[in-house]
Amino acid sequence: MSKNIIVLIGGPSSGKTTLINALKEKGQVCYPEISREVIREAQAKGIDQLFLENPLLFSQLLLEGRIQQFKNAHKEESDYVFLDRGLPDVLAYMNYIGDSYPNTFHQACKEYQYTHVFVLPPWKEIYVSDTERYETYEQAVLIHEHLKETYKKFGYHLIEIPKDTVENRLNFILGKLSKIN
């Protein structure tokens, strides 16, 4: 079996991190979302919302971090490696706010391709805002649409995960992967 680099995408507070944590508990190799780390580092330097204040710098830092995650994932011994968000997320968020970005962002998305993309739809009942998540639920829905559109532009087939319990969502992913591979 070849290496499967699997990315989970979706708007803010759709359950990605909870699902990544559940996959980890089942012994899967998982890489966390890195934007919270970038946000906390900026906040420690007195920048409250780096994405809002300097979206290009924030996006460049995310892109670099996600490229490193992709490279590290290929070194893992496991057949499956799950990532909480991928490179095209950076472009989707920049498109969402209407900012431009260098062509190197687009090239990175073409160069580093994921094996499978699972998408978690917006889910109002589980939506929560916090110090690193400033978006409203309505904005999360718009971001979700930008994410789907961006991944499709790079030729990805999106597999939508149904709204269900964490255990059922986990079983859905693992079941789909067993049928695909």
Rank of each mutant, 00 (worst) to 15 (best):
N95V: 03
E37T: 13
L61P: 14
V38E: 04
P32T: 01
Q69N: 10
G175L: 06
K3Y: 01
L8G: 06
I67R: 10
N72A: 10
V128T: 07
E135R: 00
H74T: 09
K153R: 15
D99H: 13
I34N: 09
P162H: 00
D79L: 02
L61D: 11
L57C: 08
L170W: 01
I9Y: 03
K26I: 07
F70S: 04
L50I: 04
V128G: 03
V90G: 04
D89P: 02
L91R: 03
D89A: 10
G175V: 05
E25P: 07
F58P: 05
R133V: 10
V166M: 07
S35G: 06
E160M: 08
D89Q: 02
Y96N: 02
E111T: 15
K45N: 14
E125H: 00
R66F: 06
D164T: 12
A92W: 00
A73G: 11
P88W: 00
Q107V: 08
E33Y: 07
L147Q: 04
V90P: 11
K26R: 15
Q43F: 04
K179S: 15
L174S: 11
L63A: 11
F82Q: 02
I6D: 02
L83I: 11
S129D: 06
Y134I: 07
Q43M: 11
S78K: 11
I180E: 13
P102V: 11
L61Q: 15
K26W: 05
L52W: 01
N95S: 12
L50P: 04
G175R: 04
I159H: 15
Y151Q: 08
G175W: 08
N171P: 01
N95R: 11
G155L: 03
K16E: 05
S35I: 12
R133G: 12
R66L: 03
D89C: 09
F154Q: 05
G10C: 02
G175S: 05
S13E: 03
G46N: 09
A22K: 15
L170K: 09
